[in-house]
Design a protein around this nucleic acid. Structure first.
Length: 553
RNA sequence: GGGCGCAUAGCUCAACUGGCAGAGCAAUGGACUCUUAAUCCAUAGGUUGAAGGUUCGAUUCCUUCUGCGCUCACCA
């Protein structure tokens, strides 16, 4: 089952770099530029910055004259900051002095406190931070000449024994010191860092350097993907990759507007996939009974805090399973994700604690939607008194958008009306402190899922809601080819009636079902949303390294 | 697309009711061999987002535009 993006989107607020941002091409590794000299950077930089760049280029040249390549290579540090902290922990200076070791570290200089003939550098590598103490009498005249050309932001290497300074900080007391990479642009201001939100997304490299927690967010995102992969691998699933370029007649498996593109040599119009669903189910037909794909999908829709035009989904399919089996699996998976990524089953998201301990509460879309309209589930499904109830609700509803939605619902099928009533009245009443399964979906909302044996007006489907976000969508898959053909025909009719997002008729997919797909259940999860939840990120842009932004100018 | 808000030095922000555009950090020069936003002295850095208007005088008031933020809608 494809993960379907719910909720509201809106037109992009659009974002452009502020005029004072420092972006653009890098300067050639040439002599220092005189102010006003022709240079690709000079047009976009203010006088002060141009001056800084010119000075730093000059220092790079001076380093060359000292025999140091300011962009040299071949120097690999032997240790990480983490190694030192792991080795010494809180050990007092006397203990460290018994075995100070010989530590070779490298990293970016984040701060420098200089005393003329000595200085303390805050250096960061991939594992963390370590202080480096450069003293003229320890590193020697030549290395100290190199040190004089150092700026905050440069990448350096140092080697020497460990020590603990008077102020208690674990430190490498440099016996050798050199500059590995000369930065010619300055880092963001040290107190406030990158305050311009848009610049943080646009220049993520600076964000990663100077905004606390950003690196951790993306480390957690990686752990989420790894955890899901391992979880499914351990259960006998096979990871696959299916096409991201779809032909016009391929349905993909969701209702959304696609991006369109073109293959020149084949003279073929193509679209970027909006879901992985139908290819994966073809693979189940082919005997890959447990299969999953983690990958990028694209939807040509609005952008907001929960929506980016390209995002990552995982879909997985398990033959001989039902949607009930997947509910249990989903509870296990999310519990494991919470514990492995945040360290606890109780996750704090935007100031609220959400408890991921199974079992998760379940709520019926049918019952809640019908009750909100003052109808019995049976009457609502049968459409008895439905349009009157909707009109009453619309009149009662002060909120004009909701009234408009209800008005629209009164012209829709009973199933769609129930889903709309649920959305308007019930979605915000779902528990805020627990992940929640919504079940009992009307068939009209689900063109690819299996009818319920006990009531063919419903489908065997659930969605997982957490903190008001739809995180997962799953159902027992429709494997009756005759029924599937009829559902596609209904989609064609909807398209003819003006529904731009109705699915195309995917003949080859029906053909695959005609060859026989074992009874199967499938699920889709929005990885970005999960990452938001587990990193406490208020916007999807905070968990996507380079979110789509409006171009400058 | 609608509503609300913001735009001043490279960065973060001041500037009272319309009266000489400022501070901290960053930068540069100098002092300083245990600092944690190091400290001290000095220097430099501005078309106040753009265009127009009111006024003796506009960063300040008005109009339009541009950009950004928040929010609502379209949209599953």
């Amino acid at each position: 089952m494809t993960w379907t993006r719910p909720g509201s989107t809106r037109s992009s607020p659009g974002t452009t770099c502020s005029r004072r941002s420092i972006t653009g091409s890098t300067a050639p590794p040439s002599d220092g530029l005189e102010p006003g000299e022709e240079d690709p950077m000079s047009e976009e930089l203010g006088a002060t910055e141009r001056e800084i760049v010119a000075q730093r280029l000059r220092k790079a040249e001076e380093l060359r004259q000292l025999g140091v390549n300011p962009y040299g290579n071949g120097h690999a540090p032997e240790h990480l900051a983490r190694d030192l902290h792991g080795r010494y922990g809180d050990a007092p200076p006397e203990t460290i002095a018994l075995d100070p070791g010989d530590w070779s570290v490298a990293g970016r200089v984040l701060a420098m406190r200089s005393f003329g003939k000595a200085a303390f550098l805050k250096v960061r590598d991939r594992s963390g931070e370590i202080q480096v103490w450069v003293k003229k009498d320890k590193v020697g005249e030549k290395a100290f000449e190199i040190f004089k050309r150092l700026d905050v932001g440069d990448v350096i290497a140092a080697r020497g024994p460990a020590t603990r300074t008077k102020t208690g900080e674990l430190t490498v007391e440099a016996a050798t010191f050199t500059i590995l990479t000369k930065a010619i642009r300055p880092l963001p201001e040290k107190w406030h860092g990158l305050a311009d939100v848009e610049q943080r997304y646009r220049q993520r490299y600076l964000d990663l350097v100077s905004t606390p927690g950003v690196r951790e967010t993306f480390e957690k995102r990686a752990r989420i993907v790894t955890t899901i992969r391992r979880f499914l691998d351990d259960r006998g699933y096979l990871e696959v990759e299916t096409p991201t370029l779809h032909k016009p007649e391929e349905a993909g498996g969701a209702t959304a507007r696609p991006f369109e593109t073109h293959h020149n040599a084949l003279s073929l119009d193509l679209k970027l996939r909006i879901a992985t669903e139908l290819h994966l189910k073809r693979l189940v037909v082919g005997g890959l009974e447990r299969v999953y794909e983690i990958g990028r999908i694209w939807r040509n829709e609005g952008i907001d805090r929960r929506h980016n035009p390209e995002f990552t989904s995982i879909e997985f399919y398990q033959a001989y399973a039902t949607h009930e089996d997947l509910m249990l699996l989903t509870e296990q998976l999310f519990h494991e994700l919470a514990v492995k990524v945040t360290g606890s089953a109780q996750v704090t998201f935007q100031g609220r604690v959400i408890d991921f301990t199974p079992p998760f509460p379940r709520h019926s879309m049918l019952e809640m939607g019908a009750r909100a309209l003052g109808l019995s589930p049976e009457d609502a499904l049968a459409g008895r008194g439905l349009s009157e109830a909707l009109s009453r609700a619309a009149t009662r509803e002060g909120n004009s958008e909701d009234a408009w939605k209800l008005e629209k619902a009164s012209r829709a099928s009973p199933g769609e009306a129930i889903a709309l009533a649920f959305e308007v009245f019930c979605e915000h009443e779902l528990p805020a402190d627990r992940p929640t399964f919504v079940v009992d979906f009307p068939i009209e909302t689900s063109p690819l899922s299996r009818r319920r044996d006990a009531d063919p007006r419903l489908v065997d489907r659930f969605e997982l809601f957490v903190a008001g976000m739809e995180l997962a969508n799953a159902f027992s898959e429709l494997n009756d080819p005759v029924d599937q053909r009829a559902r596609f025909e209904a989609q064609l009719a909807a398209r003819a009636a003006g529904d731009e997002e109705a699915m195309p008729f995917d003949e080859d997919f029906v053909r695959a079902l005609e060859h026989g797909m074992p009874p199967t259940a499938g699920e889709g999860i929005g990885i970005d949303r999960v990452a938001m939840l587990l990193t406490d990120a208020p916007s999807i842009r905070d968990v996507i390294l380079f979110p789509l932004l409006k171009p400058r100018e």
